[in-house]
Each structure stands twice: as C-alpha cells, then as structure tokens.
C-alpha cells in the first residue's frame, strides 16, 4: 500500500476539506479520468483496491494513480479513557477535494474505460464521474 517513506511529523491534525480542487483536476496523462465529485479521505487501502479493480478489469490499459496518501490518521484504541495523548497512526489517507482526478486510463476504448472505472467507483467512498481529456 502507498505511504510516505518518511515524514517530518508522525501525527497530523484532522483539518477540514473546503472548496473545490484548483490543481490536479484535469486529465493530464491518459485519455480517460475518474474525477471525484465530493470531498473525502481516500485511504491507502481504498486506493490499492481501486488500482487492483482497474488493472484486473482492463489489463491492457496504462493506468495512472493521481493521488497519494500523505495524511496520517490516528485513532485511539478501543475502551481507552479520554486523555493520555493522541492515538497511534491507524492508516494513511489522501485528502480529496471535489474535482480531483483519482485515476487515469489510456490505451483502451471508452467502453472498457467505463467498465473499469465503474468497478473502481464501487470501492470509493464518494460520488465520481468519468471524464475525457480536453483536446485543443
């Protein structure tokens, strides 16, 4: 699963996801892209599940993963009293704003891309849509 090799600080504050994506919102590498329409955290596990779903559905395609889980998410152990500091890091997540391109595909027809991204969409915690590269 994806995670940073090293970080300056182990634990982070949770933050809020506000506004739309102003970067990473255009199909840049492939011909088809899967775009997020809602804000969400995408855990490394879900990104991996999406990658597996897409590569199994379209093995001949070239796939790009456009997001990376930079954010460490901590969680207190069950049945722990409040206080005594922040919990341990539970998983890593990518912070997704609406409009962010999550995956890109190339080398396949639109039907194959639709099928592959439909499989991926079922594993994601937000609404998404398929978009094409903007030509011209």
């Amino acid at each position: 699963m994806l995670m940073p090799k090293r970080t300056k600080w182990r634990k982070q504050m949770r933050g809020r996801i506000r506004g739309e994506a102003t970067r990473g919102h255009e199909v840049a590498f492939g011909e088809f892209g899967l775009q997020s329409l809602e804000p969400a955290w995408l855990s490394a596990r879900v990104i991996e599940a999406g990658r597996v779903a897409a590569s199994r559905s379209a093995p001949e395609a070239k796939l790009w993963i456009r997001v990376f889980p930079h954010k460490s998410v901590s969680k207190k152990a069950a049945e722990t009293r409040m206080g005594t500091g922040k919990g341990d890091v539970e998983f890593w997540a990518a912070v997704i704003k609406p409009g962010t391109i999550l995956f890109e595909l190339d080398g396949v027809t639109e039907e194959v891309a639709k099928l592959a991204f439909n499989r991926v969409a079922h594993k994601l915690p937000m609404r998404v849509r398929l978009i094409r590269r903007r030509h011209g």
């Binding site: 739309e20 994506a21 919102h25 775009q35 329409l37 609406p98 409009g99 962010t100 978009i131």
Partner: peptide, 9 residues
C-alpha cells in the same frame, strides 16, 4: 487560456 469549473466543466 480558458479556466473551467472543475466539477461542472
């Protein structure tokens, strides 16, 4: 250049 809204084009 043309700037587009990310989610609605």
């Amino acid at each position: 250049e043309v700037a587009y809204k990310a989610t609605t084009d």
